[in-house]
Amino acid sequence: MGHLLHLDRTLDELDPPCWTPPAADATHLVRKVHELRRARLGELRPADLRILISQQVALPYVLPLTVHLLLDEPLLDACFYEGDLLLAAVGAPASAWAVLPDLTARLRAVLSTLPETAVAGLPRGGAEELARFVARPESLR
């Protein structure tokens, strides 16, 4: 989890180039993502991580922070429902996970221990999404 060593830095610093300010007519989501890129990594909340992952922003830095949280609480409710952060994370592209093989293995191990009743409580398609992540061939992780 080497990327966790940069908790005092921002995504704009770690993931160049720095983004220019959003356009005046930018959506709330665009403005929020720009704002999150200027926040220190250590200040990002689970809901912030979910947004960044869903928008595929700076995944080499965001996924390690997310996995750190999910190892302790896999079904963490970041914003909308139990497991929303987890589903965002496992939905990240395989190429993003490929550069984080140790974290992938650790998250897969945790997912393998989740009770079936907990997984069944995820929104439609959630259990299948987790199963695909766990079963993904090593070459695609």
Rank of each mutant, 00 (worst) to 15 (best):
C79F: 03
L63D: 11
R124C: 09
V90K: 01
W19E: 15
R132H: 11
G91I: 04
L69C: 07
L85Q: 12
D25I: 10
T113V: 01
R108W: 04
I51K: 00
L29Y: 05
V119T: 15
A94P: 15
P16R: 06
D8P: 01
E82M: 11
A23C: 01
V110G: 05
L130V: 15
L4Y: 07
A24G: 09
S95V: 00
H34Y: 14
A78D: 06
A98I: 01
G83S: 05
I53M: 15
L111Y: 05
C18N: 10
V90Y: 02
A58R: 07
P123G: 11
V134H: 10
R141D: 09
A39P: 05
L87R: 12
W19D: 11
P64L: 06
G83N: 05
V134Q: 09
V30C: 06
L49I: 09
L114E: 04
L75S: 02
R45L: 15
H68V: 07
G126N: 13
P64M: 03
A105T: 10
G126Q: 02
S139W: 07
L76M: 03
P60D: 11
R31Y: 07
D15T: 13
V134S: 07
C18W: 08
A118S: 12
A23W: 05
D48E: 10
C18K: 08
R108F: 02
P64W: 04
A135L: 11
P115D: 10
L130E: 03
V99P: 02
D72G: 14
L49K: 14
I51G: 03
S112H: 09
P137H: 05
P21E: 05
F133W: 08
T117H: 14
D84G: 08
V90Q: 08
L85N: 06
R124H: 14
V57S: 03
Q55A: 10
L11A: 09
F80A: 07
L100R: 10
E82T: 11
V62M: 04
